[in-house]
Write a protein that binds this DNA or RNA. Structure first.
Length: 568
DNA sequence: GTGTAAATAT
DNA sequence: CATATTTACA
């Protein structure tokens, strides 16, 4: 059944046509198994004694892709012998024996899996997995001729695995789905072999208290039989809903070693889902360390569900990190989804994914929202152009921008910062805060009243947030680094990002974080009617929070609030 | 394509 | 129940 072209053979309808050898003395059950397998389009050869079986495989090593042998309490020697002799063929042992030691022995002898009889149809159906496994783990050198095409096929499928393949796969799936749905895999007993390396979303396996960066597959929950096995890499066949292309390999790796190994990789074309299968770098290495950027990986490897439904991106700290980096590199006014995606160079990650992420991590912060609003209204104008003009990507990827303000007291803010924006600085600020703190160089930036961001947010009503509290705060602190950075970092642990933000943005970061929290805090307590309420309480809360955070730079700008001047 | 808000899934 | 993601829209 294997499409026979030469060189790169692609197995059409892959599992179909796989040759299976059955060694079973128990005629009845063996015959039954045989017929079942044949129904599944496998080519089956049944042998009743190891002699014949061994002879068969010895004659032509390539004759079979998988072997299914029975082991009985009475006479298991033959089977054991077969196991020993047929190391080259993935062998599944089926048996009535529930003896752990026997099972172990079989496995030790090389059995790919030990299945209790009666063997569920699912197991049989997915028997091909062993072949694929073998194909990918045989170690490129000794890839038998029969395995080669399989590997090629799988790789091929994984590569494109886009629309095209899904069709075929889908067909098969559909027909299987039905069956799966009704047939409960009878888990024979607690000793039953590990079933299917289920594309199980590698729920993170905590690794030495460290971060876990493993493949995280996102699979739809439509798994017929959501069985969970933690076996990350195993030789087992079971029911996989996604036959064919989803080989999810989860590995427990130490973060540090991350570099050494390739991460998930995915098919680039597909926008909805990708497969991740990486092992020994067999898969097309879609990764490329990007300049500057740390190696990119899409941690959210995803079980490529046949149904190109939707996959969820697992924003692991790592991924997020990349995201942040991209954003900061782009600079605030260029940090748009599409560009971020590009920069991230994470395969499979879509613009949408990024957009969402961006949204969340920004929405999260009212500040950011304000910024956005602001940007939207202001940037398009000349102010924007001016900035754009200075654009100089060479500078560490940042786009230098006019310094608008310095935080009067913040130590870290003295350094020249290249990205300071006149964020949501309320007009009043200019008359109060600026003056007070002597921000001489503050650019004249008076956005038209209508463009004030917070007018849109009842919660952040101007009356409430009127510069006194927030605007002022912000006016005080320079956004020394891309705003995103701060905000984004605020959401995640920044432990590893210090490098980047060390000199200039650290303080800012804290400030923003503090403010962010304060806002959150306040908003959580809707004591007063939002439209006009927040004012006093919010100011207090914010200030308090700021203080608590050690931010002591509260300029004398808040008319309604007693401006705490400094603290420690 | 972008930015949001609403819907949903977790 | 809150958060995180996706989907739908402007």
């Amino acid at each position: 059944m294997a499409g026979s072209a030469d060189g790169f053979v692609v197995w059409k309808d892959f599992p179909r046509g796989l040759r299976i050898l059955i060694l079973d003395k128990d005629a009845p059950s063996a015959v039954e198994t045989k017929s079942k397998l044949e129904e599944m389009d496998y080519i089956v050869s049944l042998y009743h004694n190891e002699e014949d079986a061994l002879e068969a495989i010895s004659k032509e090593a390539e004759s079979f892709h998988v072997a299914v042998v029975e082991v009985t309490t009475i006479d298991s020697c033959g089977s054991f012998r077969f196991l020993e002799m047929a190391k080259d063929i993935p062998t599944i042992v089926v048996s009535d024996v529930h003896c752990l030691s026997t099972m172990m022995k079989c496995i030790a002898l090389g059995a790919a899996e030990f299945l209790q009889k009666p063997v569920a149809e699912d197991k049989l159906r997915n028997i091909w997995q062993h072949v694929v496994h073998k194909a990918f783990n045989a170690g490129g050198n000794e890839l038998s001729k029969s395995l080669k095409p399989i590997k090629d096929t799988v790789v091929s499928m994984l590569k494109k695995h886009s629309e095209t393949d899904e069709h075929k796969i889908k067909e098969e799936e559909s027909e299987k789905d039905d069956k799966y749905g009704s047939e409960k895999t009878m888990t024979n007993d607690r000793f039953s072999a590990p079933s299917t390396p289920q594309p199980e979303q590698g729920k993170r396996f905590p690794t030495n208290g460290e971060f876990q960066e493993m493949t995280h597959c996102s699979i739809a929950k439509e798994l017929p039989q959501p069985r969970k096995h933690s076996s990350s890499v195993s030789k087992s066949v079971g029911n996989t809903c996604d036959n064919s292309v989803s080989i999810a390999i989860s590995k427990d790796v130490l973060p540090s070693k991350a570099e050494a190994e390739e991460e998930v990789n995915s098919v680039d074309g597909s926008k909805t889902d990708e497969c991740s299968a990486v092992k020994e770098g067999f898969l097309p290495s879609h990764f490329h360390s990007v300049d500057g950027l740390p190696k990119n990986r899409l941690s959210h490897s995803d079980g490529a569900r046949n149904n190109r439904k939707k996959m969820k991106v697992d924003w692991t700290p790592e991924l997020h990190r990349q995201f942040v980096q991209a954003v900061e590199q782009l600079g605030i006014d260029q940090a748009i989804p599409s560009k971020i995606v590009e920069l991230m160079k994470v395969e499979g990650l879509t613009r949408h994914n990024v957009a969402s992420h961006l949204q969340v991590h920004t929405k999260h912060s009212l500040l950011r929202r304000k910024y956005r609003m602001h940007r939207r209204h202001v940037l398009p104008k000349d102010a924007d152009r001016r900035w754009q003009a200075d654009k100089d990507p060479t500078q560490r990827g940042y786009i230098p921008r006019p310094v608008l303000a310095y935080p009067p007291n913040h130590p870290k803010c003295g350094a020249p910062t290249n990205q300071i924006y006149p964020f949501w600085v309320h007009p009043n600020y200019h008359s109060h805060g600026v003056q007070a703190s002597g921000q001489a160089g503050y650019t004249r930036w008076h956005p038209p009243p209508q463009s004030w961001p917070w007018k849109t947010y009842p919660v952040v009503h101007a009356d409430a947030w009127g510069c006194p509290v927030f605007a002022t705060q912000y006016g005080q602190y320079p956004m020394s680094s891309p705003l995103q950075r701060s905000l984004l970092y605020g959401d995640f642990d920044t432990s590893g990002d210090r490098l980047e933000m060390s000199q200039e943005s650290y303080g800012v970061h804290q400030v923003e974080e503090a403010i962010d929290r304060a806002i959150k805090d306040v908003m959580r307590k809707p004591r007063l009617p939002l439209p006009l309420g927040l004012k006093s309480p919010s100011a207090e809360a914010v200030l308090a929070e700021l203080h608590r955070q050690g931010i002591c730079t509260i300029p004398p700008s808040a008319p309604s609030t007693d401006p705490p001047h400094s603290c420690g």
